[in-house]
Design a protein around this nucleic acid. Structure first.
Lengths: 342, 342
DNA sequence: GCTGGCCATGTAAGCGCTTACATATGGATA
DNA sequence: TATCCATATGTAAGCGCTTACATGGCCAGC
């Protein structure tokens, strides 16, 4: 009466269909190597038993997993979502499964996640940015796991990468800000530790400041963790300075939106009282009022290309390649001339 | 000269340390069952070789994976992000790993993802909503995989669930709208097929409409796919009607934000020209201007509790339980009296 | 000095699958 | 009819790990 509680295995299917396990395996993996009548019988047994292959066993026996892992700093806020979505779609078309993990912007968690994904058999890994313990690259090498960096371009780095030049893009954006006449600017950045995008973006701001002959000391840099609320708090602090900035350049759109929110709460009009800019051009940038001036990043293109490069690496078709994408400034309502010039 | 390209196994570590594989395994899994000196030797070999356990092999030999899977409709927009984050944190504290997959709101993809996660050894699964092919429940049963539904409460359903009463919450919200004096209302909903939350929410609107003695035929329902842009398009259509609604009730915040965006583009003032409401209370709801009237859902609480219930189920400590959480209406600026009353 | 028991470690059997190789079957060819 | 080949299926050896059970060394207690 009581059903067998054990979960069905290949062996059970084989018995039920009256064939060997090899034949069942063939039905599942290369159906054309099996005669129709046999296959039908096997597939019926598969359905009747509710059989589902054991991935671990399969991976172990066949020595491949067709799995790619990606570790992103955060799943919240759409910064990485769109790119990862495209990455996944491209992988899927070629029969790969994507495993996504997030590191909460913490290096130690990222390392743990790398180990977890490798352990689970990822053939390749997509990582964000270049800064991490070199030890981990050695680990990936001994494990024979290919890795590619995205969201950051860097010719000389340990790993191949696909991304844009964060520094140059931020320099261009900052130049636009300076052209409007702003001379008191402040930067709200994500934590720079272990985050080369944040580092590069600040350097980009400084490049433009220096090129304009301004005193780089006069540019306040406020570092905070990632989030709308933290962006709002940073804005508070900046506006409380003796000589508050007329333009606040934020390291990403999320911080910028937080700043805009607080500006509104403080009764400040953007951009006439203060200009605010972002970086990433996520959907949010066009929802806020006024729309956010930011740097547009080709998320989907990056995701798609990353998938192709990484698959080629995993399949041994190439040793990888480094590619630079264009990121361009989108001027929108949140940037205007400073009050004393208007 | 050339290093062995094979990735290191337990066996390699055992040889390098001069012990048996059993001892190495014990060092890794129950260190206190091994004498200090031996353990040190083994751990050194582990590091030198860059050894990393093969998850599949371990799972197969030990018959447990300590893995929980979650399948959510979308990773974009923060609807599920916060709850899943809490879910993950709670699991992690108890040593479980979370595997997340997304279904793009498609039933067929959800089923595929369920099979993939089960295949990968998930001991338990978190699913969203109740509507799916009953066949899949049979499959989960034969595979011995526990499953729990979240984001939806339903006493009589096949699976235990933790969530809130979507219908009642939407009814309450709609009552608030009607109290303001609105009599021409429209609903923008996500696709109802395979989405019981969407179905329930519309029923909630209708409950309120009927209770107010209004003609339910007069309430336009516009169904569209999920996204800001689709919300905007839906709003366009509704406002182009012969007698446009004075209040647009959206099935979720994302659609509502899209509607607000388009309203602004059309030069309509919210709420004096048209009121708009959402559902979920994601961060976005308080970013937009005016802030969105919506239904607040206790995302984090739901995630945390879901983790505990599911772990208990997986560990055989309970057969599961169904829990109902409160979701309450948050009245904000996007809802006001209709123009003809103001 | 023996015995018993405890503890650290080793031995080896599988976990569920894939796949190289072996075998069987049935024409087509000579 | 005998031979050969192609094709369909079976056999069985692992893949890397855990763990029940076996072994051997050491010390306490008599």
């Amino acid at each position: 009466m009581s059903a067998p509680l054990a979960i069905p295995t290949l062996n059970d299917v084989a018995k039920a269909a009256g064939v060997s396990t090899a034949t069942v395996s063939r039905c599942l993996n290369s159906p054309d190597r099996v005669i129709d009548s046999t296959r039908d019988r096997v597939m019926q047994a598969v359905h009747e038993l509710g059989y589902s292959p054991n991935f671990g066993a399969r991976a172990m026996a066949s020595r491949r997993t067709n799995t790619i892992g990606a570790i992103i700093p955060t799943m919240e806020n759409a910064i990485f979502a769109r790119g990862i979505q495209a990455f996944q779609e491209e992988l899927r078309q070629s029969g790969y499964t994507l495993l996504v993990a997030s590191s909460s912007y913490r290096e130690d968690i990222e390392e743990e996640q790398i180990r977890t994904l490798v352990s689970r058999g990822a053939d390749g890994l997509l990582l964000i940015g270049h800064s991490r313990d070199p030890e981990i690259y050695k680990f990936l090498a001994t494990q024979g796991v290919q890795a590619l960096v995205a969201w950051s371009h860097n010719e000389g780095a340990k790993l191949h990468s696909i991304g844009f030049d964060n520094r140059a893009a931020m320099r261009t954006l900052t130049e636009s800000v300076l052209e409007k006449g702003h001379r008191r600017i402040a930067v709200v950045s994500a934590k720079r530790t272990g985050n080369d995008r944040a580092q590069q973006r600040i350097l980009g701001v400084m490049d433009a400041v220096a090129a304009a002959g301004m005193d780089s000391e006069a540019t306040t840099i406020f570092e905070t963790s990632y989030g709308i609320e933290t962006g709002a708090l940073a804005f508070d602090q900046l506006m409380a300075l003796a000589t508050p900035p007329t333009a606040v350049i934020c390291g990403n759109d999320v911080l910028a939106v937080g700043a805009m929110k607080r500006a509104r709460e403080l009764g400040l009009i953007v951009p006439s009282d203060v200009s605010i800019t972002g970086f990433d051009d996520i959907e949010l940038a066009r929802i806020v009022v006024p729309a956010l001036t930011t740097v547009h990043v080709p998320h989907r293109e990056m995701g798609t290309k990353a998938a192709r490069i990484l698959m080629d690496m995993v399949e041994g078709k190439s040793g990888g390649q480094t590619e630079k994408l264009d990121a361009d400034v989108r001027l929108r309502g949140s940037l205007g001339p400073p009050a004393d010039l208007s």
